[in-house]
Nucleic acid binder design. Structure first.
Lengths: 210, 210
DNA sequence: ACCTGAACACCGTTCAAGT
DNA sequence: ACCTGAACACCGTTCAAGT
């Protein structure tokens, strides 16, 4: 289970955690595992395949030991969503890589399958299940990627672009919301509320055709 | 409106469209605009700022000429979502850049404002509006990024990872869905159905506290 | 003000060669 | 089989210099 390839991928993950994905070069990785850059090509086809392999390692860590442990379908869905968010909080560089490639690895298929079975159990008509799986995974990965890249928290350390800000007269929505926009974000609570809304969405689809 | 900076950004967009984002190097861009690489740094702080500027140009193109043209709030929401998807279909490289940075540019704020006003008109309680804006924009950008990067269409030309595929015995959801999984994807229809479900989600939140 | 040339410290990947 | 050294064709960015 922990062959040379896994060793190399884990070293790459460690570099990304410490100094960012951009610091993961074949040369730096080779240095870390104590070998010449070219020796890596024996275990990894490509730089792209290396990045794929790295997210693969995280996916393995993300999966629940026993999916049937949680009792209801929405508990299992929420557990998977929270696990995904936790992974991207620990490895922010990985968030947007999750969008780049179909989940055709064994662990990716297992994650999709957890969502499939949850939706079936929820009573979603079978032809609608794959669509709702994509809707849910898209939102969860999107939330994780947004949080990890700072899309949700402007101004934090990034006051660029403020100069040309349109007058509030041009932004009636912003003006109307006034004070609500200056509240500090609690992204954990927000994620929870979002998942609750999506659970209701699933229930609505299940009801619709039953 | 179309100064030297815009000229440079549009040249960069053109390179990305023709040969991918990775082909957008300071050297290649300088070549295209007929100048030395270092001359670009007069108009753009950084490679990162260059990429920001490129998505900024697309955002400008995305915005509706007159947001009030569409009659109902859900029509305006859908129009914006379809415009976003269209942009990432024409510029696939841009999809995941939309996740990387908060929408603090003037055009970004205008797009957010369109969603704010739609949600207010839908009757969503004001404290919930910013959360639902993030939910909706996250899903729409996520869908666009997934489609643009091929996450939704595995196997197309990317049969990697199939080797270790778990047995269907391990994947009860896949087994149960059987034939529904082999249907060809109509992502336009799926996006439409997703937006309809999200519209219902918004209506449910609006009803809840009213 | 605006641009250039040369240089620095990097990249991913190839290829032939070594053991 | 597995690894290496040297090389190729690139990067972003700096700095001093030119007009």
């Amino acid at each position: 289970m922990s062959g040379r390839r896994e060793e190399i991928l884990d070293a790459a993950v460690a570099i990304a955690d410490e100094r960012g994905v951009d610091a993961v070069s074949m040369r730096a990785l080779a240095d870390r595992v104590g070998v010449t850059p070219m020796a890596l090509y024996r275990h990894v086809k490509d730089k792209a395949a290396l990045l794929d392999g790295m997210v693969g390692r995280l996916l393995t860590a993300l999966l629940p030991a026993d999916p049937a442990e949680e009792h209801t379908w929405d508990e299992r869905l929420r557990a998977l969503a929270h696990a995904a968010r936790k992974v991207t909080q620990q490895h922010p560089w990985a968030a947007h890589l999750l969008f780049s490639r179909p989940a055709v690895t064994p662990d990716g298929l297992r994650a999709v399958d957890i969502i499939y079975t949850a939706l079936i159990e929820a009573g979603v008509p079978e032809p609608q299940v794959p669509r709702l799986e994509r809707l849910i995974s898209t939102f969860v990965i999107g939330f994780a990627a947004s949080e990890a890249s700072g899309r949700f928290t402007p101004g934090a350390e990034d006051p660029r672009g403020r100069r040309g800000r349109p007058d509030d007269g041009e932004l009636p929505g912003h003006r109307a919301l006034g004070p609500w926009l200056d509240l500090p974000l609690d992204l954990t609570a927000e994620f929870e509320a979002d998942l609750a809304d999506i659970t209701r969405l699933v229930e609505a689809v299940a009801r619709y055709e039953e």
